[in-house]
Structure formats: C-alpha cells, structure tokens
Amino acid sequence: MKSYTAILRGINVAGQKKVKMTDLKTLYESMGFKNVVTYIQSGNIIFDSDIDEIENIKTQIETGINHKYDFEVPVDVRTSAEFACILDVMPFDDIDLDVDGTKVLITFLSEQPSKSKKQALQEYAKAPERLLFGDQCIYLHCPNGYGKTKLSNVFIENKLGMIATTRNLKSVTKLVELSKN
C-alpha cells in the first residue's frame, strides 16, 4: 500500500464547486482508499491505496467527484514521496516559512511543459518575482503577494496550455508533514 497526496483544482473558491471536506473524505473511503486525511477547504487529501497507477487513481477520483457533485474537478495525484521531493528540492532556500510561507507558491502541472513554453512564461515574471521550473511544477516567489502578480493559476494554465493547481508553501509543507504521520 502506497501513500498518495491529491490536490483538487478550483473547489470552494468564491462559492463555486462547494465540497465539504468531511464529505470528500467519505467519498474517498467509499472508493476504497484508506487512512484518508483532508487539510483545509481547498481540496487537499492524503490517502493510502493499493492501486499503483496514478492515472487510474486520478480517473477514479475525478469520476467519483463528478458522479457525487455533478461537476468536474481536475485532480493532481502524486505519491506522497514525490510530493515531499518537490518540497525538498525547492530552489528558494532563503525563504522564512513563517514570514513568506504564503508568498511562495508551488504550481503543480498536469505535464512537463516544453522548453519554448517555459521560456515564454518566464518572461512574465517581473522582479522582484522569481519563477523557476521543477519536475512537473513551478516554484513561484511573489514578495508583493500572490494577489498582485500576473502569474495566477489561470494565467499559467493559459500560457502553458495545461491544467495547473497552485498551493502556497505553508500548505505544501503541512501536507508533507501530514503524509509522514
């Protein structure tokens, strides 16, 4: 049995696609997932599964949500070890989690973008912002706040032509911590 971390895109935002975490936990358990833990209302779930194919897990979760709630929600699923690795190799080693934990974001990408798409997106990062690509993710530091950057999740999706889901460093750190319990 492996531990996985799933993050849902676009639920409980501005009153749209409302999903209670207690209901989501029950849904995951009804699909056979074990040791299900949710974290905050934005759709972060840690769980165990015997299924080895991440694409099968992703499809099962997306289908289950669609059947229960009658709307589609993109889901990013990674092993908890892969999720932790994304945090471990974060290139911003000068960040204080307590001070800037909400100004550093990790955008999880549905696929690895091409070199040309990476270069095109990089041009939109304006100092003092920093944008660096990782393994199927983007590390983004917005010292003036995420609400003030052009590099929103929707903007990144549009420029890269793929699904993206963004979480701040505090949330990612907490999810990694929870996955180790």
Rank of each mutant, 00 (worst) to 15 (best):
A127F: 09
A127H: 11
A127N: 10
A127G: 06
P128S: 00
P128L: 03
P128D: 00
E129V: 01
E129S: 04
R130N: 02
R130P: 00
R130L: 05
R130A: 08
R130S: 05
R130Y: 01
L131F: 11
L131R: 01
L131V: 05
L131K: 04
L131I: 08
L132M: 15
L132T: 14
F133K: 07
F133D: 01
F133L: 07
F133R: 10
G134L: 02
G134T: 04
G134W: 00
G134K: 01
G134A: 04
D135P: 00
D135W: 03
D135C: 10
D135M: 13
Q136V: 11
Q136K: 14
Q136I: 02
C137K: 08
I138Y: 02
I138Q: 01
Y139M: 10
Y139C: 01
Y139D: 02
Y139V: 04
Y139T: 01
L140T: 00
L140E: 02
L140V: 06
L140W: 08
L140A: 13
H141E: 14
C142Y: 07
C142P: 00
P143G: 08
N144H: 15
N144T: 12
G145Y: 04
G145W: 09
G145C: 08
G147D: 13
G147P: 03
G147I: 12
K148E: 12
K148H: 15
T149H: 03
T149Y: 01
T149F: 02
K150Q: 14
K150F: 10
K150P: 06
L151P: 02
L151M: 01
S152T: 15
N153F: 11
N153W: 09
N153P: 12
N153T: 09
N153M: 05
V154I: 15
V154D: 14
V154N: 15
V154Y: 13
F155Q: 06
F155I: 11
F155S: 10
I156L: 09
I156T: 08
I156E: 06
I156V: 15
I156G: 00
E157A: 09
E157T: 10
E157L: 07
E157Y: 12
E157F: 07
N158R: 14
N158E: 05
N158Q: 15
N158C: 12
N158V: 09
K159P: 05
K159G: 10
L160W: 01
L160F: 04
L160Q: 02
L160P: 00
G161H: 04
G161L: 06
G161Y: 03
M162R: 09
M162Q: 15
M162T: 09
M162G: 11
I163T: 15
I163S: 13
I163R: 11
A164S: 09
T165R: 00
T165L: 01
T165H: 04
T166M: 06
T166S: 13
T166E: 07
T166R: 02
R167V: 04
R167D: 01
R167A: 03
R167F: 05
N168H: 12
N168E: 08
N168F: 08
L169C: 08
L169P: 10
L169I: 13
L169S: 03
L169H: 07
K170R: 14
K170P: 09
K170S: 14
K170E: 11
K170W: 12
S171D: 05
S171Y: 01
V172N: 09
V172P: 13
V172Y: 13
T173A: 14
T173K: 13
T173M: 10
K174M: 12
K174I: 03
K174T: 07
K174V: 02
K174D: 00
K174L: 06
L175V: 07
L175K: 04
L175A: 05
